[in-house]
Design a protein around this nucleic acid. Structure first.
Lengths: 218, 218
DNA sequence: CTTCCGTATTCGGTCTACGGTATACTGTAC
DNA sequence: GTACAGTATACCGTAGACCGAATACGGAAG
């Protein structure tokens, strides 16, 4: 207890805090699609002024969870099937590029982190936790690529990916075990391909993996 | 004249207006790399309050023209060679994906717009104008792909692309004619490939075109 | 009963003000 | 002369209020 008393004070801003809460509220379904997010209402509910709420909404718009209508009012984005098709197709492109770069740039520590994620995914029985680790695996690949702008583009998609995966899990509870096993296999194979430092093969495998996720949706 | 009198009144916000002015100032070099952009200073110079300036700076950060340091102060981004390598490599990936989609989804009007851009590029002798039309061509391809998230990812790169092209032109004035001719040829070829609706060939040509731009830089 | 007009409410865009923090400069002491 | 401390300044984060615009609701007139 006393050891952690003198750690650096976590410095954050109200804007980030509000964004995080709204993000969680949207991902958890507490805020439903189409719901209006009036600045003043959110501000009073969160006990902050309108400015942090306003800035958080802009951030969430960038992440694709919120849309502003023509008169500047924010509402929770309603996703169509076309939206999810866009999300997974762009995800595939960005992850293929990430895999190519990661195959060349990865270090031993990077692979260890990936294996840690896969191991944790093996242990869990909670589908939400598994989804989170699935995202974390691909996030780590994007990070290993060490390409700031690529990572930013991926970051802007990540929250929407989470929403897609959550929805996918809800829609087909019964097949989730097969999907989990297949995902785990693909991730292990990915690590091995990265270890061999073959960008072409890494790209092929990543594309196959991402595409196979689309087929599951049907 | 009278025909345009009853067009919709252009509605904008101070935030957009400030963002546009700052963007132009950065692209034109009026604001130099590394320069601090103090909110209060910019606000008084532009005769607005700090809030629109602040929101505009956030927008420019998303576009990559501005960075916030650890204490939240904004300055004009200083680009390294690695930055430009990132920009062109991500550009290539996004444009290849765009070309694939555009090959399938384009309409006659889309191709007409592309040809219009190429024709205007032929006419101009102004290198800055040519660069702008070069960007406009690729912007149009990204638009034709009709993929919102892909277009947004490209949009976040566009301003940085402009900066790269401007710098490239300044650095090698003498070769610009060859580059212009090669670009014009590549763009015409691109239109023809799109017309044949062959996504694979469109992707190959786009990748070759984007990669060849990198070689020019050396 | 329907339609139109006016008013009231709501909401976003903007401005001003205040508090906290970091940095820089200056003065004093060693 | 140098180093440290204290003060001043500048800027960010945040709050609260004002204003204009849009919409919704109600009343009156046809």
């Amino acid at each position: 207890m006393s050891a952690s008393a003198l750690l650096p004070v976590p410095r954050t801003t109200l804007t980030r805090e509000v964004a995080e809460r709204l993000r969680q509220a949207i991902l958890s379904g507490e805020l439903v699609a189409g719901q209006q997010l009036a600045e003043a209402t959110m501000a009073s509910r969160l006990n902050v002024s309108r400015v942090p709420v306003r800035e958080a909404l802009v951030e969430l718009e960038r992440e694709g969870l919120v849309v502003f209508n023509e008169r500047g009012r924010a509402c929770v984005r309603a996703f169509t099937d076309e939206d999810f098709a866009e999300i997974v197709s762009l995800r595939t492109t960005l992850q293929v590029m990430s895999a190519k770069l990661a195959a060349v740039k990865h270090t031993v520590e990077d692979l260890e982190r990936l294996e840690m994620i896969v191991k944790r995914a093996d242990k869990t029985r909670d589908p939400t936790e598994f989804s989170r680790l699935d995202i974390a695996f691909h996030d780590e690949i994007a990070r290993i690529a060490r390409h700031q702008r690529l990572y930013q583009a991926w970051s802007n998609l990540r929250a929407q990916m989470e929403l897609w995966i959550v929805r996918a899990h809800r829609e087909r509870e019964r097949v989730k075990h097969d999907v989990h096993a297949a995902t785990a296999r693909a991730h292990r194979a990915m690590i091995e391909v990265l270890r061999s430092r073959d960008p072409g093969e890494a790209a092929r495998l990543m594309e196959f993996h991402c595409e196979s996720m689309i087929k599951v949706q049907d």
